[in-house]
Design a protein around this nucleic acid. Structure first.
Lengths: 124, 124
DNA sequence: TATAATTACTTTCAAAACAAAAGTAATTAT
DNA sequence: ATAATTACTTTTGTTTTGAAAGTAATTATA
């Protein structure tokens, strides 16, 4: 992977600025998904080839790590690293932006999440 | 433009989840740039065809608006709308993430910006 | 005032990324 | 033993991107 410049915004985009990486992190951080099949089943319908490629790249970049469960030889588990989890505040800002500017379009459950984010901020 | 789902994160990505849109907003919000030429001159070297296309899409999506200056018939000015300016918190989170995880790579000026963001948070 | 330079683009064409579908190998369930 | 499931890979077309060159209107310079 190459950085386009030494700008932090540009560099963050070099890492997560595609159509899928942040959605995979969303599934891990908000949806508690962890397997290939679970990511495949999300409502945006990521193609398996792209998912495979993204998971590989995310592992290379240190955003996730791969593991297995002892009770099952088939299941592969993908978990976010600290570096990956650290995108949570960014995801929260996206939720707040969409809640404000695309309110009629987004689903009810996520509107509640948006409220919860706003409330927890006021508590600070 | 079509939304892939009713998820706010996915929907925000449908709007700004490409390699260039947030960099153009960055140039407007942090670099005070406003003309085609100024955006072209940024260190990531956006191709003119893509810049032209992005500016059009951003206008269609209501993130920016186009205007002219009375003293010059040639210059076209692009300004962020409220909807566009509302991505500032997201850009700040990107700066903080990169400052933490790509510290050695990013430029000194932006490290200062990162510090300033952190300090202004502590003041709350 | 003619010429050069600048700005804001558009066009062209090759390269890269994405999407949809089908296929495979290992494992697990029936 | 057979079927189903999981985690992929491969293939093939389409879309998006990148680099370069070209253009039209306007502004600056000799």
């Amino acid at each position: 992977m190459e950085f386009r410049s030494d700008c932090p915004i540009s560099s963050a985009l070099d890492i997560v600025g595609d159509k899928w990486t942040l959605l995979i992190l969303r599934d891990m951080l908000f949806g508690e998904k962890k397997t290939f099949k679970e990511f495949s089943s999300s409502s945006e319908h990521i193609a398996s080839g792209i998912l495979s490629n993204r998971l590989l790249k995310m592992e290379e970049m240190g955003l996730i790590c791969k593991s297995k469960v002892p009770e099952n030889k088939k299941t592969v588990i993908y978990s976010p690293t600290e570096k990956g989890k650290a995108f949570l505040p960014l995801l929260r800002e996206m939720i707040l932006w969409s809640d404000h500017y695309l309110h009629d379009h987004i689903n009810e459950k996520m509107k509640q999440t948006a409220s919860a984010i706003r409330n927890s901020r006021m508590a600070n």
